[in-house]
Design a protein around this nucleic acid. Structure first.
Lengths: 196, 196
DNA sequence: CATACTATGTGTTCGTCGCCTACATCACTG
DNA sequence: CAGTGATGTAGGCGACGAACACATAGTATG
């Protein structure tokens, strides 16, 4: 009876899962290919078959993160007929929920240390994400609930607010309650800023 | 004639300067104590006299960063008699100037991987900074240019906006021009949100 | 001026890391 | 059913952070 078969079976997926675990609770810098190999019960060099370098693995995690964030945001915006205010609310809270639960992953997604090969893919993923937000604003303009103006400009305060709240939440300088209330307050600021 | 004296002279200061250089153009992860030692022309173990671990050095850099940021912000707010709008403008632009020129350092300052010993000092530095912002808002309220409300809550959208713009600037998803215009736009949002 | 003391270096070692190359085993396909 | 590519193992290289004992310089004290 074989205790451990020569081939793992699905090492790539196992590595990604394990990697996300240690990313979550110890950060990207602490992530070690050797340690992942140990945890997967495999030789130190085995992961290199699937992820040539550590950066390639991080890039794969980042891409996966974009997929998950996209799904969460899309789900939050499913009800296309709703008012702009309600959609903005759901969008903001969906983003904050994701960022609160995947802080290190989000940081990885926006990091700029990626392999040149995937850098463009990740940039495209970012564009897809902001495109999603852009569309909400445009819909709001069409409904007459958002003032006119170039969307590329109007989106900046919103994107900044969401990303900023994420940063404040992570930095620990503000309490969770302060952030929670602050989110509501910030959304109110955004709505006032967007009002026609 | 001595080419290299046994003692460096001011190794600690030299290490900090060198460290900030490589922090600036290669990031905190790439920073190596051994490399700093080489650059300073000193043995690999010499830095440990001044910085027991790499983290201690990073913490020292972070504290220095807070001092510099404090100075820049204080200078920007020197004219205490000015209107709230103008002070807000200067505060925001001072912060963005610092963040644009010291991105990696700022990230380090807000990071949460610090030694327990200095973590409190850094938290205090953060409080000092937000306290500075709080005071501007309070002054605005006293002048009747900012609506009433708990400052701890009102400060969140402003802090988020500044930190968020910094993140957008770094992530590369937005062009510098877009950020520049976006800053102006965001300040306008904040002013509208603060209006009585 | 001599003698201790302390601060600041050196030399060396340990364990871990990312990454590389050569080789072994498996699974599939023609 | 042979061969071939995918996926693993074995071992090694150089760099790293960190720890240790030891050497040297500057400074305070008798």
């Amino acid at each position: 009876m074989k205790i451990r078969p020569y081939h793992h079976g699905d090492l790539r997926a196992a590595l990604l899962t394990l990697a996300e675990g240690t990313l979550r609770d110890r950060g990207a810098a602490e992530l070690s290919l050797r340690e992942l190999a140990r945890e997967a019960g495999v030789s130190p060099a085995a992961p290199s078959r699937h992820f040539k370098t550590k950066q390639v693995l991080l890039d794969a995690l980042a891409m996966e993160g974009f997929d998950r964030l996209d799904a969460a945001m899309t789900a939050a915006l499913a009800d296309a007929g709703d008012t702009f205010d309600r959609r903005l609310d759901r969008l903001a809270r969906a983003y904050m929920t994701f960022s609160a639960g995947n802080a290190a992953l989000l940081e990885l997604m926006y990091a700029r240390k990626h392999d040149p090969d995937v850098a463009e893919d990740l940039a495209a993923a970012t564009r897809r994400l902001t495109g999603l937000v852009n569309r909400v604003i445009e819909d709001g303009q069409r409904r007459g609930e958002v003032r006119d103006g170039p969307v590329d400009l109007l989106v900046v305060p919103l994107a900044a607010a969401l990303q900023g709240l994420t940063a404040l939440l992570q930095s620990g300088g503000f309490s969770a309650g302060q952030i929670e209330q602050g989110l509501t307050e910030t959304i109110a600021f955004i709505k006032r800023g967007y009002a026609p």
